[in-house]
Amino acid sequence: MSLEANKAVVRAYVDAILVKRDFSKFPDYTAPGFYIDRSAVPEAIVGENALHSQMDMLYGAFPDLDLKVVDMVAEGDKVVVRFEAPGTHQHPFAGIEGTGRRATWKGLVMYHVVDGKLTEAWANWDDWGLINQLK
């Protein structure tokens, strides 16, 4: 797969799964066993259901979350995305009742793409920064 093809897979995954949360398309973009290694969380996010519940929790707290790809860097079978996701904190998040505050969640994520599907990801999302913006 070319770099552009790998980037296109990542963009399609972000749009369908992370933004529109159409998990019926999860197998179209991810290989069986796809997992997300998140250092802030002791366990990796493994499989569709785990990611689905994370995304539901996040959009539940920030219903207008606007998850955007602001930069991409790719080489070989890896694609890195720099994300910015501003949103309004309307419902409880990390034990904090909805504050009505605007906050921005930022992250850098590296995706491994094999034969047109994501096999693993290393995600660094600024959870601590997001929580601090609500205090």
Partner: peptide
């Protein structure tokens, strides 16, 4: 663990 580059950018994991 990973070092990749494209254009004027470099990413390290």
């Amino acid at each position: 663990h990973d070092l990749l580059a494209e254009g004027d950018k470099v990413v390290a994991r």
